[in-house]
Simulated assay, not measured.
Amino acid sequence: MKEKEVITKYALVTGGSRGIGRAICVQLAKDSDYPIIINYNSNKEAALETLKLVEEAGGTGELLPFNVSNLSEVAQALDSWQDHHENGLIEVIVNNAGITKDGLFMWMKPEDWNDVINTSLNGFFNVTNHLIQKLLVNKYGRIINLVSVSGLKGTPGQTNYSAAKGAVISATKALAQEIAKRNITVNAVAPGFINTDMTGELNEKELKKLVPANRFGEPEEVAHLVSFLASKKSAYITGEVININGGIYS
């Protein structure tokens, strides 16, 4: 009798080298048995630092560089990963990679519009679409999309970012309904002001006055929520957008 192949299940975090992505990688390493695939675009040094933190947290991980906005690069990287992990299955997908190129809409350059849309929205498609068939066959999976308060209420100076994140929110709700019967959940997490490189140039002293909790959030707080949504405990939550913003949009 042929022995059943043992499949190793993995969690992929795009944009996992810094900020919220790094915190998610570390939290998943602490809370789950998943080896963590840390995706990054260009900053290998930061990605290696994340890997070190994952290992210090008692987990295992590996780096997988690709630009989420480049369809052929995503396909090539994920296919190559699969070739080297014959019995591997990416069971958790955290679409975290995103960029901002802020500016008033009337002066926005086409490349600033396209770059932001391509990273957040097309990045979600490029990665998730490539991996979803295996999740459907497996009849289990977790897809978690990092969006933003900007995608819910719109933020002036961020028309491109608001458009990209708003689109991912709608995609989350639609896809969740398509695949719920296969035990695959699709949820979005919408952070407000979080202490990361992305918010480093903001005037925290002034902006925190807008937040009922009177402070910026920490990446680890977002990571705890993502880790819960990546677990079996969240099986009856799908198609949801969960705000984590200190009450700024409630």
Score class of each variant (00 low, 15 high):
Q27Y: 03
R18H: 06
F66L: 10
N41Q: 13
I24D: 00
T60W: 07
N70R: 13
S42G: 12
T50Y: 03
N39V: 05
A75W: 11
T60D: 10
C25E: 00
L63P: 12
L53H: 06
P65L: 02
V54H: 04
E45N: 14
K52D: 13
N41D: 12
G15Q: 01
N39S: 07
E56P: 10
N67V: 02
G58V: 04
T14Y: 09
N67E: 08
A75Y: 12
V13G: 04
E62R: 03
L64N: 00
V13A: 09
A29T: 02
L64V: 03
R18W: 01
V26N: 06
G61H: 08
P35C: 10
V13I: 14
G59D: 01
D33Q: 12
D33K: 12
C25N: 04
A46T: 08
P65T: 03
N39Y: 05
E73G: 13
S32Y: 03
Y40V: 10
V68S: 12
K30W: 05
P35I: 00
D31G: 10
I37W: 06
A29W: 01
R22F: 05
G58P: 03
N41R: 14
I37S: 05
T50C: 01
K44D: 12
C25I: 02
A57C: 06
A75V: 09
D31T: 13
I24S: 04
K44I: 13
P35L: 07
S32L: 01
L53N: 04
L53K: 07
A57Q: 00
T14A: 13
V13Q: 02
P35S: 10
S72K: 15
T50H: 05
E45S: 15
E49F: 08
V74M: 12
N70V: 11
D31E: 14
D33C: 08
R18N: 06
A75N: 15
G15S: 08
Y40S: 07
E55H: 15
A23D: 02
S72A: 15
D31Q: 13
N41W: 11
I24Q: 01
I38G: 03
E55K: 15
L28F: 08
N67K: 09
L48N: 13
E73S: 14
T14F: 11
L51Y: 11
T60Y: 10
R18G: 06
F66K: 06
K30V: 08
